[in-house]
């Protein structure tokens, strides 16, 4: 299909330039490229499906409306993530929604794994994944958010700081806390997570 050849394969930044020139297909492609990961990130900011969907729609409507005046200082992806987070907070304030700090502290961190399950081999890989997943899922929302940005979206600490509107030091601290929590939850992982902790400290 001609549209496929034409649209599909440019960089995000080329797509953005086309969008600024009113290219609707580029706009559609931008949405296609990002809505899923934006949604998954948005859900880490506020676990409220309707709120996240609204924020994503507002974000894209704004982009189209303001396409000629938005100046990108960093990557398109960075812009989208930072803007989405702001949108979610904005909408959330309007709706008197969640208190993020409260959510964070209300999470309990518990340990239900025993040390003898500590062996790691290729066969136990899937078990390891399951446990890590459970442990990660129990982390406070904010820590999950930082981990998502760092390891799922591959942002640098500096970018994460700007997206979340906090200092780089807080990013590092939050990551450190997250990994400490993981260690508390799963003591048998300690020697391995030590690798992770080592670079954060």
């Amino acid at each position: 299909m001609a549209g496929d050849l034409h649209n599909g394969w440019q960089s995000d930044e080329q797509l953005w330039s086309a969008l600024k020139l009113d290219d609707q297909a580029a706009f559609a492609e931008l949405y296609q490229r990002f809505y899923a990961i934006l949604y998954s990130y948005g859900y880490k900011v506020a676990d409220n499906t309707a709120l996240v969907e609204d924020a994503i729609q507002d974000l894209f409507v704004d982009i189209w409306r303001m396409r000629r005046s938005i100046a990108l200082a960093q990557s398109v992806k960075f812009y989208l993530f930072r803007s989405l987070r702001r949108k979610i907070h904005h909408l959330d304030k309007q709706e008197q929604g969640l208190d993020f700090e409260l959510t964070e502290t209300s999470q309990s961190v518990s340990s239900d794994y025993s040390a003898e399950q500590a062996l790691i081999s290729q066969e136990q890989q899937s078990q390891l994944i399951d446990r890590l997943t459970q442990a990660l899922a129990k982390l406070p929302q904010r820590e999950q958010e930082v981990i998502t940005l760092r390891f799922y979206q591959s942002f640098k600490n500096e970018e994460i700081a700007q997206i979340m509107g906090i200092t780089e030091k807080s990013v590092r601290n939050t990551l450190h806390k997250a990994l400490s929590h993981l260690r508390e939850q799963a003591p048998y992982l300690a020697p391995l997570l030590g690798f992770l902790l080592w670079w954060l400290s």
Binding site: Y39, I120, S121, L128, I129, L136, Y152, F195
Partner: peptide, 22 residues
Amino acid sequence: KQVVVATARAFLQAVENIQRLP
């Protein structure tokens, strides 16, 4: 390097598992 690779892999997959895609 088995343990390092296994852990890094498990960690990334776990991070992916906690994502909720639309």
